[in-house]
């Protein structure tokens, strides 16, 4: 047991769960639409990993909160304003290039985040992170490979992946944000220092982009923010409407 504010811990774990859930939901939209059978499997597999991580984080968040809300109560019975996922993961799939760039951005970040959280003073968090880190490492490798193939592929694939990089780049600033909750939990040895990971994340991205013959986007541009405090893009409401339809329509039912 750690000595930290339980409200802080709830917020922190919920954010991790929400990002996993929303990304898992996005990836599952690909089923039946992938460019080849091998990717059909890889996308479903990544979706499954993300939903699995979300379930672990959300159940734990529910326990920390102590008001009897389980993973499904948290996933299915909250509205846009209560979701605290990163803006990056709610961005639509658009095409395979967007999906792979989004996946690389998130997975390469989450891999580093969970590497640290494995050693969190909160043993539950550490346990969840230890499993998730392997999954995110694989996702980063898989999507990174695709960035290279697409960047160094045809004229069309190069243009598509370049555009995805450019469009999704403004959502990467939020990955490394830390507010009071993060700082207090960092001090308690519970949270990870994401700010300190930015350089390494950039360096890893740069290596991929060199191989992909793509330029590294500039940090001098405006970065979007707000997902972690419930201020989202228009896309999230539609995603939730689809995901929550059954439990919302039949609130008394168990499934």
């Amino acid at each position: 047991m750690t000595t930290c504010d339980q409200k802080d811990l709830f917020t922190y774990v919920l954010r991790l769960g929400d990002s996993g859930l929303v990304l898992g939901q996005r990836l599952s939209e690909w089923v039946g639409k992938a460019p080849m059978l091998e990717e059909e499997m890889a996308l479903a597999n990544m979706a499954l990993d993300m939903v699995g991580q979300a379930r672990n984080f959300l159940s734990y968040a529910g326990e920390v909160e102590g008001r009897g809300r389980g993973e499904d109560a948290l996933a299915m019975h909250r509205d846009v304003g209560s979701f605290s996922n990163l803006l990056l993961v709610e961005q639509p799939n658009r095409d395979f290039a967007y999906t792979m760039v989004r996946q690389y951005f998130y997975a390469s970040f989450a891999e580093r985040l969970f590497e640290q959280l494995q050693h969190s003073a909160d043993s539950r968090l550490a346990g969840i992170a230890a499993k998730a880190v392997k999954e995110c490492r694989y996702h980063a490798r898989h999507s990174g490979l695709w960035l290279v193939r697409l960047g160094d592929g045809t004229e069309e694939s190069h243009q598509r992946v370049a555009r995805a990089l450019e469009d999704l780049w403004p959502y990467t600033g939020e990955l490394f944000e830390m507010d009071e909750v993060d700082r207090r939990l960092l001090e308690a040895g519970v949270a990870a220092d994401v700010q300190a990971m930015r350089t390494e994340w950039r360096e890893a991205l740069n290596q991929v982009l060199v191989e992909a013959r793509l330029p590294l986007p500039s940090d001098e541009i405006w970065m979007h923010s707000g997902g972690r405090i419930g201020r989202h893009s228009e896309h999230l409401g539609h995603l939730l409407a689809t995901m929550q339809i059954l439990p919302r329509s039949y609130p008394d039912a168990n499934w």
Binding site: S28, E29, V31, L48, V51, A54, L58, L246
Partner: peptide, 19 residues
């Protein structure tokens, strides 16, 4: 029904199945 599975457990099971 993958994006509308009524619980996270059902979503995970269905994802594993289609995989």
């Amino acid at each position: 029904w993958l994006t509308r599975a009524p619980s996270l457990k059902r979503k995970a099971i269905l994802l594993a199945k289609v995989q």
